[in-house]
Computed example of a mutant assay.
Amino acid sequence: MTDGEAYTLADEIVARARIHAREVVDEYGLAVDLSALEWTVSARARRRAGACRWQPDREVATIVLARRAYERYDWPAFAGIVRHELVHAWEFQQFGESGHGSRFRERAAALEAPRYCESFAEPRYVLRCRAADCDWHATRHRASKPVKAPNQYRCGACGGVYEVEHAASGRTWTTASGYGGAKAALGDDW
């Protein structure tokens, strides 16, 4: 930073993540080339606390961390997210690919990194099976096709019909026209 620039929350997140990354490399011996890592913060991310993107032409991994997750989690939990993304960076640097397979799981366990993280944002929509003997439900953060036209899809457990609830208002619908009606009725509260 130059004189007069304000220190932002994104700067804090990146600084703490870089420090933690150095500690992980030193403590656990993770063979990640830290000079081939870039860091950024997403202010928009709602579901993923982190991501690792590989740029094979440059052989650079970019770790993206979610500001909302940083604000919601305590540091030990967020540090686990950093370690999770470092495992992806290691896989990209060593093998040119990454996933959540056995190699990833083994390395993540050695680093005490979570395989998945808890949601840090409340879902916008809840899908629930309408069958009396089924308790299937799913959550969504975006208005996906199953949210907009639930009558074209079926329950993930029993194959029955389901309804969608707009979590903030409690409004429900089972058809595409119901979705449109709920959206119109809620207006700015959508």
Rank of each mutant, 00 (worst) to 15 (best):
S144C: 04
S144E: 10
K145L: 15
K145P: 15
K145V: 06
K145T: 15
P146W: 01
P146G: 04
P146V: 00
P146N: 01
V147M: 08
V147D: 13
V147L: 04
V147T: 06
V147N: 06
K148S: 11
K148Q: 15
K148V: 15
K148N: 01
K148D: 00
K148R: 15
A149C: 07
A149S: 12
A149D: 07
P150Y: 08
P150V: 14
P150G: 09
P150M: 07
P150S: 10
P150C: 09
N151M: 10
N151Q: 15
N151K: 11
N151E: 14
N151D: 14
Q152V: 12
Q152G: 07
Q152W: 08
Y153C: 06
Y153M: 03
Y153Q: 04
R154F: 12
R154M: 05
R154D: 13
R154I: 12
C155N: 08
C155Q: 04
C155H: 04
C155P: 04
G156Y: 02
G156S: 01
A157I: 05
A157W: 12
A157D: 15
A157F: 05
A157R: 12
C158R: 02
C158E: 03
C158Q: 08
C158K: 02
C158A: 00
C158S: 05
G159K: 05
G159T: 06
G159V: 02
G160R: 00
V161G: 11
Y162S: 10
Y162A: 07
Y162C: 11
Y162I: 09
Y162P: 10
E163R: 07
E163L: 07
E163A: 06
V164T: 03
V164G: 05
V164L: 00
V164Q: 03
V164P: 03
H166Y: 10
H166K: 08
H166L: 07
H166G: 09
H166T: 10
A167D: 14
A167G: 03
A167I: 09
A167S: 15
A168G: 06
A168L: 03
A168D: 12
A168E: 10
A168M: 04
S169C: 00
S169K: 04
S169N: 00
G170A: 01
G170M: 01
G170P: 01
R171C: 03
R171I: 04
R171G: 03
T172A: 00
T172G: 00
T172Y: 02
W173F: 11
W173N: 13
W173P: 15
W173I: 10
W173R: 15
W173Q: 12
T174R: 14
T174V: 10
T174M: 07
T174W: 04
T175C: 14
T175Q: 11
T175S: 15
A176S: 14
A176I: 00
S177G: 01
S177L: 02
G178C: 14
G178E: 13
G178W: 12
Y179R: 13
Y179V: 11
Y179C: 12
G180D: 11
G180P: 00
G180W: 08
G180Q: 14
G181F: 09
G181Q: 13
G181Y: 11
